[in-house]
Amino acid sequence: MEQDRTPRLGLPLLATGQAQKELTHNEALALLDLAVGSAVTAVGPNAPPAAPAIGQAWIVGTAPVGDWIGHAGAVAGWTAAGWRFVAPFEGLSVWIVAEKLHARYVAGAWVRGEVRAERVLVGGVAVLGAQEPAIAGTGGGTVVDMEARAVLDRVLGALRAHGLIAR
């Protein structure tokens, strides 16, 4: 059985012996233009804007109306031929222009502004890593100077472990 769309982006595929293949090909290019390196104006509106510019895109809200009905959560882009939609899939990422941050589709929802990493490198040097254990404060003992020095040593050790200061 021949598929008529790609599994992730839903791009239309050319069929053997298909007439006017350029229509299918152009539709696929329009959807790729919308999905790859995507930037959206906003996340969550339910109604399409009154006068969108060609190339503008939005992430449709949870209760869409008008031309967006049936496309909740999708990336909606305005083209010369009207609205095009890319259904969200796990890991789809967009840049939100107004908020100047990324949104990623994770576990069935758009997550805005969250960055996940095992560690962060700057100039090839790890500056953030896994969270270290908590550092206990001073106990209020009689030898405050020694307690303060011990806590400060633990703070410096944690900063070094996270790569925030040199070892």
Rank of each mutant, 00 (worst) to 15 (best):
I54C: 07
G61W: 08
A51K: 10
P48L: 00
D67Y: 05
A72R: 00
A98V: 15
G113W: 06
L32P: 01
V155W: 02
L152K: 08
G17W: 13
T79H: 01
G108I: 03
L23H: 04
P52T: 02
L14M: 11
E90V: 03
N26R: 13
E132N: 15
A53K: 12
V65Q: 12
A166S: 11
A39P: 02
M1Q: 06
A103N: 10
A130Q: 15
H102R: 11
A136P: 09
P12H: 11
E22S: 15
T16Y: 15
V120D: 15
A51I: 04
V143P: 00
V60Y: 08
D153V: 11
A74H: 10
I135G: 12
V151Q: 07
L11M: 03
S93M: 11
P12Y: 08
V106M: 07
V115R: 10
G113P: 04
I135C: 13
L11C: 05
G123H: 12
A130W: 09
Q56T: 09
E114C: 05
G140D: 03
D67L: 02
V143A: 15
K100Q: 05
V111K: 05
V120W: 15
W110M: 01
W58G: 07
V94T: 07
S93G: 06
G129Q: 09
V127G: 04
L128G: 14
A150G: 05
V65H: 07
L152R: 07
T138G: 04
A72W: 00
E27W: 15
G108E: 06
L156G: 02
G66K: 00
A63D: 08
V151T: 08
T41Y: 11
A80F: 07
L31M: 01
G55E: 03
G77Y: 07
A42T: 00
A107S: 12
V143E: 08
V151Y: 05
A42Y: 02
L156C: 02
T79R: 00
E147L: 03
V106Q: 13
E147M: 04
I54L: 13
Q18P: 00
A63Y: 04
A166Y: 02
